[in-house]
Write a protein that binds this DNA or RNA. Structure first.
Lengths: 224, 224
DNA sequence: CAGATTCTGTGAGGCACCTCACAGAAGCGT
DNA sequence: ACGCTTCTGTGAGGTGCCTCACAGAATCTG
């Protein structure tokens, strides 16, 4: 559940390989980086910006798996096992990164056994997160999932404010938040209204301020 | 989405390590193998029987992640990254297996770089499956998820019958099926009644026969 | 700065699925 | 073979969350 290490801690290992050997690329906001089912197998390290990883149903409904930022990598699945892309990746903002062919990554891993163990660690982390999301979705109701999401996002994208408050700096639309937890945009809106009246959160133009993270943590309580 | 390779194909790699170096163990039906949050870090290869991997909420609701059988491994997460167990593992039948300490597994991996790549492949597979389950749960309704589950289970546990039919040999209670897809036992029952009347499935004492897998596949249609 | 988009707010109505309640069937142990 | 436990079947009733519909607020864009 805890969020990845800070960028500087990842300079070694896989991220280091991409940093040293990858070629620089950038994408404008809204551009698709790859699509579900595609057969390419490059891997990318984000140096700037935000990428949305998602899947969509035939009738247009969208499920966002996660948002990735500087220091995060994407495309590891197809790069490492050579299979098709398992989700869509879209630049949520202007994005800069470094990419490397999957085959070259594998070659490096064979030469540096420690890097391979590093990759194993990363995949374990991802697996923990994904299966945690799955069970949370099975076991918790919409309110709990949304509370959990706000806390989770604020760990990665938030800035601490005096008094234990947190501000979500990056802009997430209610519609995005809904697609992240499997709620409709309207339901997110109604829940926010209630929390705002209860003083748990506040809207501040572009961002959301978590005034009472403890209350959210209580609302998020569930499984284990 | 597709199920793991057959036992003999996995004799090499990680499974081979467990086969050669692990010690034999067995568990009676119903015995817990490990519990969520526990700090042990052994890994196990199943040689006989079935293991249920699940998580539960505080109020007793249960979400089954998967059922594993002969040739499958469990406990890799904690064994490989040293973290706590991320789910419960319970023997669904009498189980025989071979276990090895995570530290010893890691040591072997350092000595055999090919085995490390094998592990990476396995983790990628698991990640594809888990994130597929997640998005399916977000995007598809109960009927589609249940249809998908029957097809999925029959790939792993089913036997082919003349006329393209499939029989689910292993016994899965409706309650288990519900916990596998996030439906109540009653909803599973009602859906089965409808499918049985439509001739899509049939009950045969202990097992379920999929009379018309095509119809189920159509019902399962969704994302991609 | 006007116009086009995208986002937000909110009500009305519906439906998929749940919970509760209970009864009969089937497996399981001694 | 007997009870005990677990599983199945089915109705009644509730509700969380969705969809539709529309209006106003922001935010982009030329």
């Amino acid at each position: 559940m805890s969020i990845e290490a800070a960028p500087e801690r990842r300079a070694r290992g896989l991220a280091g390989i991409l940093e040293r050997h990858g070629r620089a690329v950038d994408y404008p906001k809204g551009r698709m980086i790859y699509a579900t089912g595609a057969q390419d197998s490059t891997m990318m390290l984000i140096t700037k910006g935000r990428v949305e990883i998602s899947r969509s149903s035939v009738d247009g409904r969208r499920s966002i798996l996660t948002h990735l930022g500087p220091g995060d990598m994407l495309g590891e699945l197809a790069a490492l096992d050579g299979g098709a892309r398992s989700a869509d990746a879209v630049a949520a903002t202007t994005v800069q990164g470094r990419v490397l062919e999957g085959a070259l990554v594998l070659q490096r891993l064979r030469e540096e056994p420690d890097a391979a163990l590093d990759v194993i660690g990363m995949l374990c982390q991802r697996l923990r997160q994904t299966s945690g999301m799955y069970t949370a979705h099975m076991l918790a109701d919409g309110q709990a999932r949304l509370a959990r999401l706000l806390l989770h996002l604020s760990e990665k994208w938030g800035e601490a404010l005096p008094g234990g408050k947190l501000r979500l700096a990056e802009r997430f639309s209610q519609s995005d938040l809904g697609d992240l937890v499997g709620l409709s945009r309207e339901s997110v809106n109604r829940q926010f209204r209630d929390w705002e009246q209860a003083g748990v959160i506040a809207r501040e133009g572009m961002g959301i301020v978590l005034c009472d993270p403890g209350a959210l943590a209580r609302a998020a309580e569930m499984a284990e």
